[in-house]
Design a protein around this nucleic acid. Sequence first.
RNA 1: GGCUCGUUGGUCAAGUGGUUAAGACACGGCCCUUUCACGGCUGUAACAGGGGUUCAAAUCCCCUACGAGUCACCA
Length: 475
Amino acid sequence: MTRTRFAPSPTGFMHIGNLRTALYEYLIAKSQNGKFILRIEDTDQNRLVLEAEKIIFDTLKITGLKYDEGPDIGGNFGPYVQSERKEIYKKYALELIKNNHAYYCFCDKEEFNAEDRFSEKNKCNCKNLSADEIKKNLEAGKNFVIRQNIPDGETSFFDQVYGEITVKNSELDDQVLIKSDGLPTYNFANVIDDHLMEITHVVRGCEYLSSTPKYNLLYKAFGWQIPEYIHLPLILDEHGEKLSKRKGAASFEDLMKMGFLPEAIINYIALLGWSPDNNQEIFSLAELEKKFNVRGLSKSPAIFDLAKLKWMNGEYIKKMDKDKFYNLALDYFKKNIKKSDLDYKFMAEAAQTRVEFIEDAWKLFDFVDELRDYDLDLFLNKKMKVTHEISYDVLNCVLDKLKDIELKNWYGENLKNVLMDLAKEKNLKTGQIFWPLLIALSGKKNTPCGATEIAEMLGKDESLKRINFAIEKLK
RNA sequence: GGCUCGUUGGUCAAGUGGUUAAGACACGGCCCUUUCACGGCUGUAACAGGGGUUCAAAUCCCCUACGAGUCACCA
């Protein structure tokens, strides 16, 4: 059975790249009826961030990436937190030492750090220590790490995205397996855990591509079966650099704060580095589970494009249940617009197809409370052949007609009829009536609905006031 | 610097030896429309460069350029 795992370290926010890795891991498992496991890699005690685990749980919950096993829900392969597995790693490390695939190293940490990174390999003689010397050091309580003993030769592996990759073993370090604090490094722990947890497909960012040969050597040393490897290309920011916190939207939390819907985020990042067999763009998670295949994964890095995510967010807003959108938009209407006798239902409906963020819905109606001064040239409209003169004349006629309408008849449909009649009477195009009126009432070119609907929204007094103001302005 | 990987329009991308080199976002135009939007139609715009192999190359090979990853007691 296919088993994949998401193995984040709890060091802070949920990076978009990590979330996408989790998504693909989830999809690979689910598309094959397999299991998706969450494992917390907290072996670096210095980088732990409080709350970070909660962010991981919450994000997976919000996005719907439901895991089958994990620290908070258990499973048959636990514990699912690496710091609780310390003894397990130790045991396997000792086994490697016994078989000469690893060795004790008593060197001081500082010695190595001081060395030039690009110069010759760290030369540590600990590999050649005699059994006696090792015993003496251990008994003396000397600090040690356990290092992997990389053999000569070369190592190849097959990656489902990048294909066959071969590296000379001389390029590989005798990496540390167990740190001096007794905890394993990622490099060791991931191999042990992936094996013990029976992970079949190791999915991770391609920054691990170059250390994969070392992991393979470990699998080989234990005589374990090597899992399928699926390395993922990077996600970059708009400058072609690594996504970073400083430049804005690097994390899921950031995007949520900006008003993006979780479904839209998931849909968008699914397409960053993967493409389906057809041209479909909008996918629910359930659809992705059905259609995802490793074949569609790309090798080259992708740039995170906020503009396209915005478009997608708009698509999800349009698809959203009307009542749901209404309820969400209502808060913003009430909070930001003072006028209260408004048809919020109507407003929500008008906004739903025009907005990329729910919190922007009210902005379409920002002219309701107050008419901001506007440029006279807004009246000009080539297509409808509207000029300043026509606007002036039309608004005078409109004012004439409207001022006699009784309050009980002041509603959109009726106003529209009255003005249509006016157009006929004056032999004008309908646009030549409605355009100047729209500008006069709203002071803007882009409005969420038509002129008569706005007139209804504003009420008779306010509408006439604004028409008068426009006439004065045009004089 | 060594090693490894990558490079199709501004962006995401399809493409696996013969295509008018898809589609989406963004941008422009047109239609619909009392505005805007939605929707529909449409336009601009790409195989990093150079060598091979082949009747034929975006596709296979080599070189160059550029970019990235890695070379931690971080993951």
